[in-house]
């Protein structure tokens, strides 16, 4: 979800209004993904590196996220979407927000529709380190560790490999996003800024993804998270 700041600057607005405009895009994309039959949707809302932004902006983001989450929680639940939040380990996340995240997770935990993972205060390397820690704590002998057993120690181990990553506003970086899961992901970089990103853009990305020939370097692991099925 890149380009909020640039979107605001282009319109001579404060950066915060760019974040506010992003709300409409988020809701539109969730709805588009759900009706297109996507089973797993992840949104990268806030990275562990974003803490270095100006204090006021971070503060504003926290309050904004809280109000957005509270506003849309009943609707997400009504649509049968299972929500969960990846990350949220930093003590700087306000406890009220943590509480709301926990409440949304509890509320929608039994839903069997699309799974929406919101990466908030997330870092891909951090997750891998956490998995390694968990392995060591479990006392697993080194020889028995393979990719599958390692992945079982990642946060939300039921998350399948990512099939498609859409990075808006023309940025071409991974930015520490779900590093383990994106190993074989297809990448699409639309130039449109996130606040302008809408359902048609999302569907266009899906269409391009379907036309790609995914060979997985010659091997064919199970495509458990294929969005088209």
């Amino acid at each position: 979800m890149d380009g909020n700041g640039r979107w605001a600057v282009e319109r001579s607005l404060p950066r915060t209004s760019g974040h506010r405009a992003a709300e409409a895009a988020v809701i539109d994309v969730i709805e588009a993904a759900r009706s297109a039959g996507v089973r797993w949707l992840s949104l990268y809302a806030f990275s562990t590196e974003n803490w270095s932004r100006p204090h006021t902006e971070v503060d504003y983001l926290m309050r904004l996220v809280r109000s957005v989450v509270r506003k849309h929680a009943p609707l997400l639940h009504a649509r049968g979407i299972r929500c969960r939040f990846l990350g949220v380990g930093d003590p700087r996340v306000p406890p009220e927000l943590t509480r709301d995240f926990a409440d949304v997770t509890t509320l929608t935990g039994d839903n069997r529709g699309m799974t929406l993972t919101v990466a908030f205060d997330h870092g891909g390397r951090g997750d891998i380190v956490a998995a390694a820690r968990s392995l060591i704590r479990a006392g697993v002998p080194a020889e028995t560790v393979d990719e599958r057993s390692f992945a079982a120690h990642l946060p939300f181990p039921d998350t399948p490999d990512v099939d498609l990553v859409i990075r808006t506003s023309g940025e071409h970086r991974i930015s520490n996003f779900m590093l383990w899961q994106v190993a074989y992901a297809e990448w699409i970089f639309p130039a449109v800024l996130w606040p302008d990103f809408r359902a048609p853009h999302f569907l266009a990305c899906l269409h391009r993804y379907r036309q790609r020939d995914r060979r997985f370097g010659g091997v064919l692991p199970e495509q458990n998270g294929d969005p088209t099925t």
């Binding site: 989450v69 509270r70 929680a73 009943p74 509480r99 409440d103 509890t106 509320l107 039994d110």
Partner: peptide, 14 residues
């Protein structure tokens, strides 16, 4: 009840 509690907390005005 936990879910109901979560919902109530979420829909209560801040």
């Amino acid at each position: 009840m936990r879910r109901a509690g979560a919902l109530i907390r979420l829909v209560t005005p801040l």
